[in-house]
Simulated scan of single mutants.
Amino acid sequence: MGRFSESSNDDELEGGIDMSPLIDCVFILLIFFIVTTVFVEESGIEVDKPNAASASQLEKTSVLIAISAAGEVVYGGSEIGVGGVQSTVKREISKEMIPVIIQADKDAKYGLVARVLDEAKLAGAEKVSFATTVAGS
Rank of each mutant, 00 (worst) to 15 (best):
I102W: 08
A66N: 02
E96H: 06
A125K: 00
V40W: 09
G136C: 07
V85I: 03
F32P: 09
P99T: 00
S129F: 15
S94G: 13
G44D: 04
F33Q: 03
R3L: 06
G77L: 02
S7Y: 12
I98K: 05
R115K: 09
Y110T: 08
S7V: 05
F39I: 06
I31Q: 07
D10M: 02
I67E: 00
S78P: 05
V63I: 04
D11F: 14
L29A: 11
S129H: 08
L22E: 13
T37E: 14
D105A: 00
V82K: 01
T61S: 14
P50R: 03
L13K: 05
S54R: 00
I93A: 08
L58K: 01
D24G: 13
L64Q: 05
A69H: 02
T61K: 13
E126D: 07
I80F: 10
I67V: 03
E92L: 05
S5P: 11
D107Y: 01
L22M: 09
E41T: 12
E92F: 08
K60I: 08
A114M: 07
R3S: 12
N51W: 12
G84K: 01
L122F: 13
F130P: 06
G111E: 11
S5A: 11
I28T: 11
A108K: 00
L64H: 08
L64P: 10
K49V: 14
Q57G: 09
I93S: 09
S56E: 15
G15M: 09
P21A: 04
I28F: 15
I23T: 10
G16D: 13
V47K: 01
F39D: 09
I31P: 14
I102L: 05
I98N: 05
G84S: 02
S20N: 12
L117Y: 15
T132G: 06
A52F: 03
T132W: 05
T132N: 04
E12W: 14
S94R: 06
K127M: 14
E59Q: 03
L64W: 10
L13P: 10
M97W: 11
G16Q: 05
C25Q: 14
D105Y: 00
Y75E: 03
D18K: 10
I65F: 08
S137P: 12
T133R: 11
D118C: 08
I80A: 04
E92H: 01
R3Q: 09
V134K: 10
F39K: 06
I34D: 12
D10S: 02
A55T: 07
I93T: 02
I34Y: 11
G16W: 14
L117E: 15
K106L: 15
